[in-house]
Computed example of a mutant assay.
Amino acid sequence: MADDQRLWGYTEVAAHLGISIGAARSRKSRGSLPAPDDDSVPDRPRWKPSTLKGWKPVGRGFRSDLHGPSPHEITPSN
């Protein structure tokens, strides 16, 4: 892969979004996740971390006030 990013499966996507793996699968099937960066293996879509970082889910049930910046977005003040 050109940018050498490790691809995320449902487990990593769910952890990043703070939802269950089943919820991540459900969101994918409803079209509520960004398009996968790699769908070459059937039933195993994978995303680049950069695709999901900064992306915020929309719709019923998402509480944006509960989600702070990800640890990758926090920079030291020095």
Rank of each mutant, 00 (worst) to 15 (best):
I19F: 04
A35V: 14
A14K: 02
D39R: 12
T51V: 03
R25E: 12
G31N: 07
D39N: 14
F62M: 05
P34E: 07
A23K: 10
S64C: 04
P36R: 03
E73C: 00
V13S: 01
I74P: 01
R63C: 04
D43C: 07
D3E: 12
D65C: 08
Y10H: 06
Y10C: 03
S50N: 07
E73Y: 01
E12C: 01
D37T: 11
I21C: 01
D4L: 06
S20I: 06
S26L: 13
L7D: 05
Y10M: 11
P36W: 02
P45W: 05
V13G: 00
D39H: 12
P57W: 06
S64W: 12
G31C: 07
S50T: 15
S26H: 11
G22L: 13
N78K: 08
I19T: 05
K48R: 15
D38C: 03
P45R: 06
L66V: 09
D65L: 10
A24E: 00
T11N: 09
G31P: 04
D38Y: 00
K56E: 14
A2L: 11
K28C: 13
R25G: 09
S77I: 09
V58E: 13
R27K: 15
M1C: 07
S29I: 10
K53S: 05
I21E: 06
R60G: 08
P69V: 03
V41T: 14
S77N: 08
G22R: 15
H67D: 05
H16Q: 02
G54P: 11
R30D: 09
R46E: 14
K53I: 11
S50H: 04
A15R: 13
S20V: 06
H67N: 06
R27Y: 15
A24W: 00
T11K: 13
H16E: 01
A23D: 02
L7A: 11
T11V: 11
S32C: 13
R30M: 13
W8I: 04
G54V: 10
G61M: 05
H67F: 11
W47P: 00
R25M: 14
S64H: 15
H16V: 00
S26E: 10
R6H: 09
P69S: 06
I21Y: 01
R63S: 09
A2V: 12
K56A: 15
N78C: 10
G31A: 07
D39V: 04
A2E: 12
S70L: 11
A23V: 05
V58T: 14
D39E: 13
I21M: 05
V13N: 00
R6K: 14
K28N: 15
S29H: 12
A2G: 15
T75K: 14
H67T: 11
D3R: 07
S77L: 12
D38E: 04
T51G: 00
P57F: 07
D37I: 04
L33K: 01
Q5M: 09
G31T: 05
E73V: 03
